[in-house]
Write a protein that binds this DNA or RNA. Structure first.
Lengths: 207, 207
DNA sequence: CCCTTTTATTTGGTCAATCAATCAAACGCG
DNA sequence: CGCGTTTGATTGATTGACCAAATAAAAGGG
């Protein structure tokens, strides 16, 4: 049962990493959590970094699945007949849903961001992670802009970057402080985005 | 020259931490960078955590100073006669300025966020760091809301959280990828915020 | 002013603990 | 038997923390 064992190690790595973080989790810890010998993890993963990357990818699968079930594909194109405004609103709802469901994944992700600051291999994985989600938001934004009364100054990519950043920043505040009302913050962001998308001609001059 | 030595250690810690990150920097590295004996850092700072906290506080000083010189006090009240809209616009400009100037501080900050995920003492420092900046934004937001045509659904605090999160998320993208056009993202955020602040009565229904 | 005592600072080495990674040997299934 | 899998002990290196001794600075006394 080689594949099964590999999976058991990745699952154990997820639990251990969520609980203790990358630098505080040893390969021995992970092996113990998986109930295998200390050396076995290195049979399947050459380095600890590789195991972390595999763990992230695995942990993202249920999220991707949730998006797909909601009729949205993070990587594929938007459905032909989709109203971008509707998709955007659904996106904000899904963001709130994620917040309730995937606290462990966020811990893992933010931990990986920290590690990636000084680790090229992890940094590459982090950039890919960001790019995928940002590109998805950009596709929606593109459609929203097309339907706007007045073209915005900023590009769809820049707006997507601001939106992704905002969601990330809100998630971070939630992880750092469980009492933080992240849903209210997402609602606020949503309200800003809608005001932007439905704005009439507006002067940028200070009143 | 006890104070001077302590300062030299903190400065060395800043350089070493920015270059290598918390977990890859040993107390010995910092002592070497400062040109003092390996054990000396432990004379001034009981633990490595304490040194990190001191280093962050020190690194934030020039930023605080820049804000103060721009006529804004991160901790104090807004000036009586200040137009919140003008302050907000200046805030976005300062955010862009910071981005150009303080890359090292951002690396340090994001590193600290990562460490704080699984380290209570650092986590407390992180929460204080976030709260201070978010509260400042909230004061501006409060004033902007007061001048709006229609009261928003979201509270000033929620909006401030979304805005701070967005700035943080944009900074992160910049740190992770120097080619990322963070100024465009901040401009996009600014455009959204202004659309929100100057919006007329708008239906939340999907068109 | 010099000498002594006390206190503050700095040194450099030691400590036990921990780590990722390696590897030879054992296992077990076909 | 043979080969992919698994074991668990080992390696060499590094870590944060600690400490006793050395040095410098300050205080006090004659």
């Amino acid at each position: 049962m080689p594949d099964q064992t590999k999976e058991r190690i990745v699952d154990a790595a997820y639990r251990a990493l969520v609980k203790q973080g990358y630098h505080e989790t040893s390969m021995k810890d992970i092996a113990a959590e998986a109930g295998v010998a200390p050396g076995l993890a290195h049979y399947y993963f050459e380095t600890k970094e590789d195991l972390l990357v595999a763990t992230i990818e695995r942990a993202c699968q249920p999220v991707m699945e949730a998006w797909r079930q909601a009729g949205m594909n993070l990587t594929g194109p938007l459905p032909e007949d989709a109203d971008p405004m509707v998709v955007a609103r659904m996106g904000f709802e899904l963001a709130k849903e994620e917040l309730r469901t995937y606290r462990g994944l966020f811990l893992l992700t933010f931990d990986m961001f920290g590690v990636g600051l000084h680790n090229p291999k992890i940094a590459a994985a982090v950039r890919a992670f960001i790019d995928e989600r940002r590109a998805f938001i950009a596709r929606i934004t593109q459609g929203v802009i097309a339907g706007m009364n007045e073209a915005p100054i900023a590009s769809a990519d820049a707006i997507a970057a601001a939106l992704w950043g905002s969601l990330h920043g809100i998630y971070l505040q939630k992880v750092m402080n469980p009492d933080f009302d992240a849903e209210a913050a997402i609602d606020a962001l949503s309200e800003m985005a809608i005001a932007f998308a439905t704005r009439p001609r507006v002067s940028l001059e200070v009143r």
